[in-house]
Design a protein around this nucleic acid. Sequence first.
DNA 1: AATTTGTCTTGACACTGTCCAGTTAAGGCA
DNA 2: TGCCTTAACTGGACAGTGTCAAGACAAATT
Lengths: 201, 201
Amino acid sequence: MTVEKHSYHHGDLRAALLAAGESVLAETGMEGFSLRRVAREVGVSHSAPAHHFGDTQGLLVALATQGFRQFLAAMQARQNACQTQDAGDLLVASGLGYLDFTIASPALFKLMFGSDKMDVCDPALEAAATAAFDHLAQDIARLRGVSPYEDTAAMADVMASWSMVHGFASLLLSGRMHNVQEMDQPAREAFFRQVFARAID
Amino acid sequence: MTVEKHSYHHGDLRAALLAAGESVLAETGMEGFSLRRVAREVGVSHSAPAHHFGDTQGLLVALATQGFRQFLAAMQARQNACQTQDAGDLLVASGLGYLDFTIASPALFKLMFGSDKMDVCDPALEAAATAAFDHLAQDIARLRGVSPYEDTAAMADVMASWSMVHGFASLLLSGRMHNVQEMDQPAREAFFRQVFARAID
DNA sequence: AATTTGTCTTGACACTGTCCAGTTAAGGCA
DNA sequence: TGCCTTAACTGGACAGTGTCAAGACAAATT
């Protein structure tokens, strides 16, 4: 895993730190995350990351930004796997993609939405998050035939479906939805469809 | 604020630590929270808390437990302020109480639902969380005329309304619902009603 | 070939959580 | 009353953390 040959200059340290950061986050959660640890993982001095990300928050913001892109990709992947072009089905597919990402990368999800140490105003982060939001807004636009940005009722639909998936996913992660946690993947998916349907009709 | 007279034995250190912990959490969020700081706030040695709470997680779990009780109280308070006895109105009142608590104690809310460093299996925490959940289940039981524990459709209603409020509240805190954040309290409340209504009908 | 620039290292500081051995006071028991 | 067991709290130590400053190194530029 770790490379043995060390030239003084790493070559692509920034990318390596991002990758290591993501894997540390995935393996140990925010609990075991530290700048020094990520540096160690890459085989580099403890304050090398500072040059690329400033401080811990800088690295976390970069990870969250990456996360939002994966997040969007997960929703698109589910839609691409969709047979029909029915607007309702496509929206549900987005919801399932939302859930996929949450379950696959719980720590990243918490970082993106739950963390205190997150500069919400970072432009790159903002852009990635907005792109994900816009995807959902488009789903609603297709369903309602109006842009949510021009129709308040459609915007309420966006907020409703977003809140619904997000709440479902968050509660699942928080460990407070015991009955759903016990389900296997297909059962959970069916139950989610049943719940999510309430958000839009 | 801080008491100057120190007898060796504090008297009610446990309660004092809980109070200080809550205020630190409210003022600085999870960011500025530390066992030593809470101890300092109370004017006590840095390792005094250990005797009452074991470790940091112990104090946090106790705070979250307290939080769930306040959380339930917030929902009940909104219901008590309710004029009608209409089941639908009472459910909405619970939702508004949910939001009240979230906005009043954002850090505590994040701790209760979002934190990694939380022993989800702690019996007292479990009990307090379940009590809050049961409150919502009762709202649905009143609305549907069936106990959600005996009717899967009603249980789906519970999950739907819970997910909806929770998602709405979480997204609001995460700073990613710009348009809603800009609203003043009555406008936000009206918009929430509009969104929340979709969860149940 | 010399110098500038960006990359990385090393060492330091203040802070954290947790452990451990000690000190102090309170409450039961004679 | 006096003793003594036990709970409450202290103080110091240790490893680990984030951040800062000064320096070492190599690549790019001139």
